[in-house]
């Protein structure tokens, strides 16, 4: 059984409101996530799920107009995305970006070594890093050919998503926000990626899964399921809520609120 509710929250989001280009997207959003927990966030298209993920990761285009984010007890609003990453926040992108000219292995190593030196630990050379990667590649059933290709360059949708989880596996964050990592995965890939995420989850870290499909939650068991609507969490429940949503859609909740 996973430890839920021990001590202080890993991340506490308090009455958060954000704007982009003068438009308010998140409105008074409050959420606490404790070490060892898995939260799922569902909600209609355009309800603000990706915005929430990007704001947690520190996207500079979104302006926080109200509220705050405390992570491991520190206020992260003034931290840059790279500083937040080094504190242990990781975001898996709904649409991972292609970066030409850098091989996936150099990129992973650069990210890993940057984190290592931030932790005051030794950097790995390419050969050591290659060893470190092997287990993670196996776990996610990623062929090592992918390491020699440029980051996400010409990867299929599903391959990009796998690559996101590979990055998570390499960086071992304290908080991972996975934005629709399951979208675009075939049935086998969904199983492999989910097993990977389950292996990475432990009592000290936490995961926020953003998804449209209850199916993912058959593989990764959430402690909480939240429904987001118009930039706020309008309902919180457990796994059963996801099943209910699968059957009935969102209307009944939106009517309720």
């Amino acid at each position: 059984m996973r430890n839920t509710n021990g001590g202080n929250p890993l991340v506490h989001i308090d009455g958060l409101a954000t704007e982009i280009e003068g438009r308010e997207i998140l409105k008074d959003l409050t959420l606490s996530v404790f070490p060892g927990e898995i939260h799922a966030i569902m909600g209609p298209n355009g309800s603000g799920k990706s915005t929430f993920a990007k704001v947690l990761a520190g996207h500079p285009s979104y302006e926080v107009t109200k509220g705050g984010i405390t992570f491991s007890g520190i206020d992260v609003l003034d931290l840059s995305p790279e500083e937040r990453a080094r504190e242990g926040i990781f975001m898996g992108f709904q649409y991972p970006v292609e970066i030409p000219g850098v091989t996936n292995s150099s990129f992973l190593r650069l990210a890993f070594n940057t984190a290592q030196s931030a932790r005051g630990e030794d950097e790995l050379d390419p050969i050591e890093f290659d060893d470190y990667l092997q287990d993670k590649l196996k776990m996610l059933e990623i062929s090592s050919d992918f390491l020699d290709r440029s980051v996400n360059g010409g990867f299929s949708g599903g391959e990009k998503k796998r690559n996101e989880i590979l990055q998570m596996a390499v960086l071992e964050p304290k908080l991972a926000i996975l934005d629709e990592t399951d979208s675009g995965l075939d049935i086998d890939a969904l199983r492999v990626v989910s097993q990977g995420v389950n292996k990475l989850a432990n009592n000290d870290n936490a995961i926020i899964l953003i998804t449209h499909y209850q199916r993912l939650l058959n593989y990764i068991k959430p402690d909480f399921v939240h429904v987001m609507h118009e930039g706020n969490i309008v309902k919180t429940g457990n796994e059963k809520l996801a099943q209910e949503l699968e059957e009935k859609g969102y209307d009944w909740i939106l009517d309720e609120t």
Binding site: P60, P81, P100, G101, V102, A111, A118
Partner: peptide
């Protein structure tokens, strides 16, 4: 591109290094 910058930064890569990576990426083609 801001989104490309953000992607690299979320992996802990400092902004100035991210910039260089993207500049090279442009030339890489």
């Amino acid at each position: 591109n801001d989104d490309e910058m953000f992607y690299l930064q979320t992996r802990g890569i400092p902004k100035d290094v991210a910039r260089k990576i993207l500049i090279y990426g442009f030339a890489a083609e």
